[in-house]
Design a protein around this nucleic acid. Sequence first.
DNA 1: ACTTTCCAGTACTGGACGGTATCGTAGTGT
DNA 2: ACACTACGATACCGTCCAGTACTGGAAAGT
Lengths: 210, 210
Amino acid sequence: MPAALAPEPTAPAQILSRDPRTVRSRAAVLQATVELMVERGVHTVSVDAIVERSGVAKTTVYRHWPTREALVMAAWQTLVSTDDVDPSGTMHEQLRTLALAFATRIGTPPMSLLLPDLMASSARDPKMHAMYDEVVRSRRRPVMETVQAGIAAGLLPPSTDAELVCQLILGPIAYAQLLRHAEVDTAFVERLVTVVLEAANQNMVRTTCD
Amino acid sequence: MPAALAPEPTAPAQILSRDPRTVRSRAAVLQATVELMVERGVHTVSVDAIVERSGVAKTTVYRHWPTREALVMAAWQTLVSTDDVDPSGTMHEQLRTLALAFATRIGTPPMSLLLPDLMASSARDPKMHAMYDEVVRSRRRPVMETVQAGIAAGLLPPSTDAELVCQLILGPIAYAQLLRHAEVDTAFVERLVTVVLEAANQNMVRTTCD
DNA sequence: ACTTTCCAGTACTGGACGGTATCGTAGTGT
DNA sequence: ACACTACGATACCGTCCAGTACTGGAAAGT
């Protein structure tokens, strides 16, 4: 089956190299890059260190990525995950699960160490900013959808501000996890979701203020 | 009024140099350092750039600070402010003022650009971590005190969890400002404080969960 | 006026780093 | 079996950077 004709629309630029040597090199370099980013910080990762850690020659690194920045970006790409958990269950349970996943994600390595670096980079680099938005939004989206579905299903008052509910849940978690370095455990997340949903249920979280 | 006798207990290690040349040099170097930290990021500030910007000779820089890291730390020290606004007013007004000051502080330069850098540094450097805690706690403390005073004055139910109230107010602001890059305006802060205080008033934010 | 202290300027060392060039070799698809 | 491709190794270049040594001169205190 000659596949030279099919351009494979849903696989942009990775299928070109079926040579196992290239995939081995790429994987080793990317893994070493991520490891070093976590260990020593993103901005202190040098190509020489990546070469030493991965066992891949420097020439090969520059054969795959034109510059150090491109390599770091590629390493970031391997870290954007979209594992959304949404089986059946009450809205409360779903939100608790999502909130806990959010807390765990940003509170444990590698993201707990990498997210501040990404935030710092995104303040001045537009590419990093785009990456950052992608990371944050991929976590925010399922929460937002769950709240909106709850409103649509009549589980929350129609005038509920879904965005504010979302922020009231994710905000304190991020604040506790990133700004304070307080421990975010299951009990805290449970209480938080309960309080916010209770307030929303009593129509305190409305789209219009007064 | 000769003040040579008073040791000035609240000025640890700066009074030793009364020579105006040294204070000029120190001020110029620190200012240039802060400027470059904001413009180019903390980790990309070089001593040569500081020398060029400040007009102070490299030798002089190293005469005042033993290493680059010490200079960066000294520059950070100039940025920890403790301007707490607490005149008279209702608890609601005080919290709104504090929340707005918090939002403005972390949402506008220089802190909007420096805080992510500080967070990233604090993840791996204990000294930076201490500095970071100092910055964050100085903003959190007056909010906490205001809430606790409100509980003591009977403005909020006695079983109110002051810490959770504090996190419900500051968390979404930090989240919106840092993780999302949404605009935090006065209306949002007002709504947020109103919602949280209303929920607390109805005894939804209790210390014990169930 | 005199001594001391601080300064600017310059030149330098040693090292780390990003990126390139060359070359011989080993694995790969056909 | 053969041509090809990617590879590892090494050496190299230019640049940037932290930190030091040395100088002559200016400003401070006395």
